[in-house]
Design a protein around this nucleic acid. Structure first.
Length: 457
DNA sequence: TCTGGGGTCCTAGGACCC
DNA sequence: TCTGGGGTCCTAGGACCC
């Protein structure tokens, strides 16, 4: 059996831990630049705020309904996530951290009543971390995911499902008839793996509930749709097709991109931003022990500003050799930027992507042909005896850079991100024109000494 | 004025190989 | 009349997830 544990309205719940006055009120958390809603309390959902709802379109709720909107505080959410994951992990032999607020637990071989254990886990996470969770249990990950949805819906809209399926919902512990009733009452679009497109296609073919989907023949689904949806159907039927992955492989690509707080027109500002993003991407790269073979740079105007001239460009810059060196990567990125930048446009967003990633301990050795050139006055035959040193010399240079990078990471780890950075990433004053807008950010209560909460007697 | 930032997997089609 | 039969690798694009 598998369980999916996830924090309810996670970002909002994190904020409520430190501002209990927000409990019971409509609250949303906004994306970067305070652009749109990315988390909503149940009260905010009830008001009709959608996921991804642009803030400027729902601002009126602030005045009319007391909606509280906060800027995203990812330092806080990341830290709260870790705390929640640690508690959850103590309940099962294996855990897959699936996203910032969700983890799968694999209970294979664990004796005892899972519902009782999961209720205990839920209570402990609530008490120790302060985050309310929903737990779904099922014989496959897809069913656990569905169970989790049902547990939430039972809480949020009483009467949708039997009350016993609230908070902790175990789809493997109810009768076949009950299970089918649950399937029949659930829209096919709620299934993990069925998105907007596939959902519409299914409905067109008369498959509108989970029950309709479960009753399809899996191999027919493969022919009409894809192997992906076939797996989904089999998982709903109770056959495990998707494993719990508790040792995720290193990422195959690393992206850092941001929309700007204000439109950017100067190449110089774009260069500052690209340098900063590259630097951040390189930190992530080193964090997973990889080196990049190429860097992709992109810039674009805002597709929402239809009256402005539009421009969007991407360039891939191959690197001479794979590297995780921030400075080398930034130099290449800027070279790429020079190739695609055009003056006269209002840029809204830029980003970099590190690709062709490989492990640093698997790196190809190489001969440095420059060092192998026979210097004048030397006998080639004689010098060949020392040709191995060219390689050694080159590699020791690389090791020096690697040490520099780990020193940089250590300083930033201890004194905070950005304490030590590339000159090209600019000072605060250089970023004024385009830095991200975060007008409603709460303190970093758990990760910054200066922001720690004070209890008054 | 104002619209996020990441990722993964699969498939189809083209280039190229023998 | 009639023009093989496999393969692999790469890329772009689509679909999904949070």
């Amino acid at each position: 059996m598998f369980a999916l544990v996830d924090g309810n309205n996670f970002y909002v719940s994190c904020e409520r831990v430190f501002r209990p006055s927000l409990v019971g009120r409509p609250v949303i958390v906004l994306s970067n630049n305070d652009g749109c809603a990315i988390a909503r309390s149940n009260e905010a959902k009830a008001l009709g705020v959608r996921m991804g709802h642009p803030w400027f379109q729902c601002k009126d709720f602030e005045r009319d309904h007391g909606l509280v909107a906060l800027s995203a505080n990812f330092a806080l959410y990341g830290d709260m996530s870790e705390r929640m994951m640690v508690v959850a992990s103590s309940y099962a032999p294996r855990q897959e951290i699936y996203s910032i607020d969700e983890s799968f637990l694999d209970f294979t071989g664990v004796p005892g009543d899972l519902v009782v254990m999961c209720r205990d886990m839920r209570a402990r996470i609530l008490q120790w971390v302060g985050i309310p969770c929903g737990v779904g249990i099922g014989p496959t990950k897809t069913l656990a995911k569905l169970a989790n949805y049902i547990s939430k819906t039972t809480e949020r809209k009483p009467g949708s499902y039997p009350q016993k399926l609230g908070q902790v919902c175990h789809l493997g512990a109810i009768s076949q008839d009950e299970l089918h009733a649950v399937f029949a009452a659930t829209d096919v679009g709620e299934v993990w793996g069925v998105g907007k497109r596939i959902g519409a296609q299914l409905r067109e073919g008369g498959v509108s509930t989970v029950l309709d989907l479960v009753r399809l023949d899996a191999s027919t689904v493969r022919r009409h749709f894809s192997v992906v949806l076939e797996k989904t159907v089999r998982e709903l039927q109770g056959t495990q097709c998707i494993e719990v992955d508790d040792q995720p492989a290193p990422k195959q690509q690393i992206m850092v991109s941001r929309s700007f707080g204000h439109a950017v027109t100067k190449g110089r500002d774009l260069a500052t931003a690209i340098t900063e993003y590259t630097s951040r991407a390189a930190e992530k790269l080193r964090g997973q022990g990889s080196a990049a073979g190429a860097i992709v740079v992109f810039i674009r105007t805002s597709p929402f500003r239809k009256d402005d001239p539009q421009y969007s460009a991407t360039v891939t810059v191959p690197l001479l050799r794979p590297t995780a060196d921030s400075a080398l990567l930034a130099t290449s990125a800027i070279a790429g930027l020079r190739g695609i930048y055009k003056a006269g446009f209002k840029y809204a967003k830029a980003g970099v992507m590190l690709v062709d990633l490989q492990s640093t301990d698997m790196q190809q050795g190489e001969l440095d042909f420059d060092a192998l050139e026979t210097p004048p006055g030397h006998d080639r035959e004689v010098d060949q005896g020392v040709s191995g040193s060219a390689l050694t010399c080159h590699q020791s240079g690389q090791r020096g850079r690697a040490k520099l990078m780990s020193a940089m990471d250590a300083v930033n780890g201890r004194y905070g991100r950005g304490s030590l950075k590339l000159a090209g990433a600019g000072l605060e004053i250089d970023r004024k024109g385009w830095a991200m807008k975060q007008e409603r950010r709460t303190p970093q209560y758990t990760t910054c000494w200066g922001d720690i909460a004070v209890v008054r007697a």
